[in-house]
């Protein structure tokens, strides 16, 4: 019997949607690159450092893949094989998270390389080593953005995994995750502006952490989030861990 980790990679490899959705995300990046050809030099730096929207597209892909990775095992009944082989359910759970983490890492690398390729093909005049935010070069800004997005993605992984452990339908988990990805920041900002008296507590809500990258790009965003970038980092870490631990507890109790 092959080790569980190997099995997870094999499943990801042979599942077409894993790679097709990633290709679509890269396609959307190319489209963004093509539609922003005539923007100013400053804007072209912004688009490049944000990987032509690639990180946002990849988060949607990651949410869908993560949701189906958990729920499909219960839907198909294949969880029985996994639990028998793993000896304990928590091991199955964390091996799945490890496989998703590897996919997450590979996805971010592909998005990074695609952004560089799009720049070379469509924006030859853009200097990768010209200065941009935080006194760093454009390319460093892209790397920083990718790293922060990778870190933030665990908040989504945690949330979606938790929902996937409750729901038996991957579409539900994916839809809620994507809904949070689109509307989470807005919802948090609305709550904070509507109830100023509870800001000291409400600013720690998980949706507020989704402003992380936005605040990195525009530091003045602190007036909306009421948190320092470092505090948001801690918030992301704590909420991600909390969601993942809750997910594990639900995963262990779920009926096979």
């Amino acid at each position: 019997m092959k080790p569980l980790m190997y099995q997870e990679f094999l499943k990801l490899r042979f599942k077409k949607s894993t790679w097709i959705s990633l290709i679509i995300a890269v396609g959307m990046m190319v489209l963004t690159g093509l539609t922003t050809l005539s923007v100013s030099s400053s804007d072209s730096k912004y688009y490049f450092s944000s990987a032509y929207g690639g990180f946002q597209w990849f988060i949607i892909v990651l949410i869908a893949i993560n949701a189906s990775s958990i729920t499909s095992e219960f839907q198909l009944g294949t969880i029985k094989h996994l639990v028998i082989q793993a000896d304990s359910r928590w091991r199955v759970y964390y091996i799945k998270l490890l496989a998703i983490s590897c996919y997450n890492f590979i996805g971010h690398i592909i998005i990074f390389l695609a952004a560089v390729l799009i720049k070379l093909l469509l924006y030859p005049e853009l200097d990768l080593f010209s200065h941009y935010h935080y006194g760093s070069t454009v390319i460093v800004n892209l790397i920083l953005n990718g790293t922060l997005d990778f870190f933030l993605s665990y908040l989504f992984i945690g949330m979606v995994t938790l929902i996937a452990c409750i729901s038996s339908n991957s579409a539900v988990a994916a839809s809620v995750g994507i809904g949070v990805a689109f509307a989470g920041e807005g919802l948090s900002n609305m709550l904070l502006s509507s109830f100023p008296s509870i800001i000291p507590i409400m600013r720690w809500n998980p949706f507020n952490m989704l402003n992380f990258q936005q605040q990195f790009a525009y530091p003045e965003h602190i007036h909306d989030t009421h948190l320092l970038l470092s505090q948001m980092g801690v918030g992301i870490f704590v909420w991600s861990c909390l969601f993942l631990i809750l997910g594990q507890l639900l995963f262990q109790r779920r009926k096979i």
Partner: peptide, 20 residues
């Protein structure tokens, strides 16, 4: 147990390879 639990995107051979 119950129904055969299979991944629709894998072939029969890949299943056997997975578990053998």
């Amino acid at each position: 147990i119950e129904n055969p639990s299979l991944y629709p995107y894998l072939t029969g051979f890949q299943h056997l390879n997975l578990y053998s």
